[in-house]
Lab assay of single mutants.
Amino acid sequence: SEFQINEQVLASWSDSRFYPAKVTAVNKDGTYTVKFYDGVVQTVKHIHVKA
């Protein structure tokens, strides 16, 4: 599913667990740039983002 900029989502971290994050960019290659609550910004594949 498509997510929008500033949408609150759950994004997987390197430990494969999902954490609350905010979408900061929707990228043309189908990835999302997300910002976790601790301030870390990461680009993740769409399969690693869920509502």
Rank of each mutant, 00 (worst) to 15 (best):
E2A: 14
K50P: 07
Q42P: 03
Q8H: 14
F18T: 00
W13C: 10
F3A: 04
I47A: 13
E2D: 10
Q4A: 08
V26I: 13
N27D: 02
K35Y: 09
A11V: 13
N6H: 10
Y19M: 10
G30S: 01
D38Q: 05
Y37V: 09
V41W: 05
W13Y: 15
V23D: 03
F18S: 02
E2Q: 12
V49H: 06
Q8Y: 13
Y32N: 00
E2L: 13
D38E: 06
V49S: 07
Q4G: 11
F18Y: 12
Q8I: 15
T43V: 13
S16A: 08
Y19A: 07
S1R: 14
V34C: 03
W13F: 12
H48L: 07
T33S: 06
F3T: 03
N27C: 07
H46Y: 10
V41I: 13
K35G: 04
G30F: 06
N27F: 08
D38H: 11
H46F: 11
Y37T: 09
F18H: 05
V40R: 13
I47D: 15
D29H: 02
Q4R: 11
W13T: 09
T43W: 03
V41A: 05
L10Y: 14
R17M: 14
A25Y: 05
T43S: 07
D15Y: 05
T33L: 08
H46M: 11
D29A: 00
S12T: 11
H46T: 12
V41K: 05
V40I: 12
S12K: 15
W13I: 12
G39L: 03
A25I: 07
A25S: 10
K50E: 08
P20L: 10
N6V: 03
K45Q: 12
F36A: 00
V44H: 02
E7R: 02
T31G: 01
K22T: 15
T31N: 01
K50M: 14
F3G: 03
A25M: 08
N6R: 03
V44I: 10
A11R: 00
Y32R: 00
I47S: 13
S16H: 13
V49N: 05
V41H: 07
Q42G: 11
Q42W: 12
W13A: 13
Y32D: 01
S12P: 08
F18P: 05
V26Y: 06
K22A: 08
K28A: 13
G39P: 04
K28S: 14
S14Y: 10
V40K: 13
A25K: 09
F36N: 00
P20Q: 08
L10Q: 07
V34Q: 01
S16V: 07
V44C: 06
T33M: 06
D29R: 00
W13E: 03
S14H: 14
Q42Y: 09
V49Y: 05
R17V: 13
T33N: 08
K28Q: 13
V40C: 14
D15V: 02
G30E: 03
F18Q: 02
K45A: 13
A11D: 00
V44D: 02
Q4W: 06
E2F: 13
Y37E: 14
K22P: 01
V40W: 12
K45T: 11
Q42V: 15
A51V: 09
G39A: 04
S16N: 14
N6D: 12
Y19W: 10
R17A: 11
A21R: 00
F36S: 02
V34P: 00
V44R: 02
V49M: 12
K28R: 10
F36H: 00
V9I: 08
V26F: 07
F18M: 08
A11Y: 03
A51T: 08
Q8N: 14
K22I: 15
Q4K: 12
P20Y: 08
S1K: 14
S12Y: 14
L10N: 03
V34T: 00
F36K: 00
Q4I: 07
Y32E: 00
A51I: 09
K35I: 14
F3M: 03
V26S: 04
S16R: 08
V26E: 01
K50F: 09
K50W: 12
T33P: 00
A25G: 10
K28M: 10
K28P: 11
A51Q: 12
G30H: 04
Y37M: 12
Y19R: 05
A25F: 08
Y37R: 09
V34K: 00
A51W: 07
G30Q: 01
K28L: 09
V49G: 05
L10M: 11
V9K: 02
V9G: 01
Q4H: 12
Y19E: 06
R17D: 13
V34I: 08
S1P: 14
A25Q: 09
V44L: 10
G39S: 06
P20M: 06
Q4L: 08
V49D: 06
R17L: 13
V40L: 12
D38T: 14
E2G: 14
G39W: 05
W13G: 11
V44P: 01
S16Q: 10
V34E: 00
V49F: 05
Y19C: 12
A21L: 02
A11L: 05
H48P: 02
N27Y: 02
L10T: 04
E7T: 09
A25V: 09
P20V: 09
V23Q: 00
H48E: 10
K35L: 14
S1G: 12
S12D: 04
A21D: 01
D15L: 01
A25L: 06
N6T: 02
S16L: 09
V40A: 13
V40D: 11
A25P: 00
K35M: 14
H48G: 05
D15A: 01
A51M: 08
R17K: 14
T43C: 07
I5W: 05
F3C: 05
E7N: 08
D38V: 04
K45F: 10
F18I: 03
A21Q: 00
V23N: 01
F18E: 04
A11F: 05
E2M: 15
S1T: 12
K45M: 14
Y32Q: 01
Q42H: 13
E7F: 07
D29I: 03
F3Q: 02
S1M: 15
V49Q: 06
E7L: 06
N27H: 11
H48N: 14
E7W: 08
S12R: 15
Q42A: 15
I5H: 04
S16G: 15
I5T: 05
T24K: 05
D38N: 14
Y37S: 12
T31A: 03
Y32G: 02
T24C: 12
F3V: 05
Q4V: 09
V44Q: 00
V49R: 11
K50Y: 11
I47H: 15
S12H: 10
K50N: 07
G39C: 07
T33W: 05
H48Y: 13
I5A: 05
V9P: 02
L10R: 00
H48I: 07
D15S: 07
L10W: 14
R17F: 13
K22S: 11
S1I: 13
S1H: 15
T43M: 08
H46A: 15
A51K: 15
D15I: 04
T43I: 11
F36W: 06
G30D: 05
R17G: 12
V41N: 06
D29F: 02
K28H: 11
N6E: 08
T31W: 07
I47F: 13
H48C: 15
D15N: 09
S12V: 13
D29N: 08
D38I: 06
A11P: 02
G30P: 01
T43E: 07
V41G: 03
